[in-house]
């Protein structure tokens, strides 16, 4: 059975391996380059000192690597593509071409057929995303010193969440294929389901895994020790006497800012943030959410294959 699964997915496996190697080469080259820039600007020395103000150097570094650090968002496509191109056709193509009637009428029960296929695909997905995760954690090393790894894009790549999203996309694809039995339709459904889980989790759930810390302080006082290069700042702004918050002010640049703020009725600053030390807790919670959805999708797929498909 392992032979059959391998023989069927040999080509895809090689393509996947090729893409992974290309990504690894790309990340290694750009990562080394980035580390070099970091050194050359003297930023590492400056930050190691601890007393100096390095913001100018940080800005210079950010400017040099901006294209790269924003282009990395495209890596979010990797899990989705895996789900669409490997997950969705896994069962759907078999049913579409009628070959499930061949596979399920050999001496191997269809449960075993399914278990072997699922194990191999999920194991491959796990390993591939694990390798990518390790590379990205290294790649982000210099960037993490000047921007929060807790911030949305960086968070997605630097921990088990990347593995979680990969397995989620794969299992959703497999279940969608078993459900609609047509490859193209299954691909569309996979994309919809994946986004329907992934986007709300990132936008609405993630900031609330633990209650964020809300700091308020008088306009004249100095704020709490929060570092935008470490902590995840969810929102900040001004608050009036009734506690109404705003993040936008309409003050012209010619006005005295302090006077303008007071003139508009605001009496204090506020800051809502997640401290940096919660990073791993949040990683594991979010990974758990994705794995729970993956488990549901797997149960559905197994049930469909055993009971519904012919």
């Amino acid at each position: 059975m392992i032979w059959l699964a391998w023989r069927q997915h040999r080509a895809e496996s090689f393509i996947m391996l090729g893409v992974l190697v290309l990504l690894a080469v790309f990340l290694t080259m750009t990562g080394l380059n980035m580390a070099h820039t970091f050194q050359q600007l003297g930023l590492s020395a400056c930050l190691a000192n601890g007393h100096r103000d390095c913001s100018e150097l940080e800005d210079a570094f950010q400017n040099q690597v901006r294209a790269l650090s924003s282009a990395i968002i495209w890596l979010n496509l990797c899990p989705v593509l895996l789900g669409l191109l490997v997950g969705a056709p896994l069962i759907a193509r078999e049913v579409e071409q009628g070959t499930h009637r061949l596979a399920w009428t050999q001496s191997v029960t269809r449960l075993r057929w399914l278990v072997v296929k699922l194990s191999l695909v999920l194991l491959t997905g796990f390993l591939a995303s694990g390798v990518l995760m390790a590379l990205l954690i290294w790649w982000y090393g210099p960037l993490n010193q000047v921007q929060a790894r807790f911030a949305p894009i960086a968070f997605d790549f630097q921990g088990p969440v990347l593995i979680g999203t990969t397995l989620l996309a794969l299992t959703l694809g497999i279940a969608a294929g078993a459900l609609v039995r047509r490859t193209v339709l299954a691909m569309a459904l996979t994309l919809v389901l994946f986004l329907a889980i992934r986007v709300p989790v990132e936008l609405w759930l993630r900031p609330h895994y633990q209650p964020p810390i809300v700091a308020t302080w008088a306009l004249s006082a100095s704020g709490p020790q929060v570092d935008s290069a470490d902590d995840w700042i969810i929102s900040n702004g001004w608050m009036d006497a009734q506690g109404n918050q705003t993040t936008n002010l309409s003050c012209s640049s010619t006005q005295n800012l302090q006077q303008c703020i007071q003139g508009l009725g605001y009496r204090a600053n506020f800051l809502i943030y997640q401290p940096a030390d919660r990073f791993w807790t949040f990683q594991w919670i979010e990974t758990g959410i994705y794995l729970a959805f993956s488990a549901l999708a797997l149960i559905l797929a197994v049930w469909l294959v055993r009971r519904r498909l012919t």
Partner: peptide, 27 residues
């Protein structure tokens, strides 16, 4: 069992199909 339209894995060679038979059937 030979299903209607005798499905085979189109990308498999005859040799592959025999291996499939051998791997998946004890007899």
């Amino acid at each position: 069992f030979v299903a209607q339209d005798h499905p085979l894995y189109r990308g498999f060679t005859g040799e592959d199909m025999l291996t499939l038979g051998q791997k998946l059937n004890p007899r």
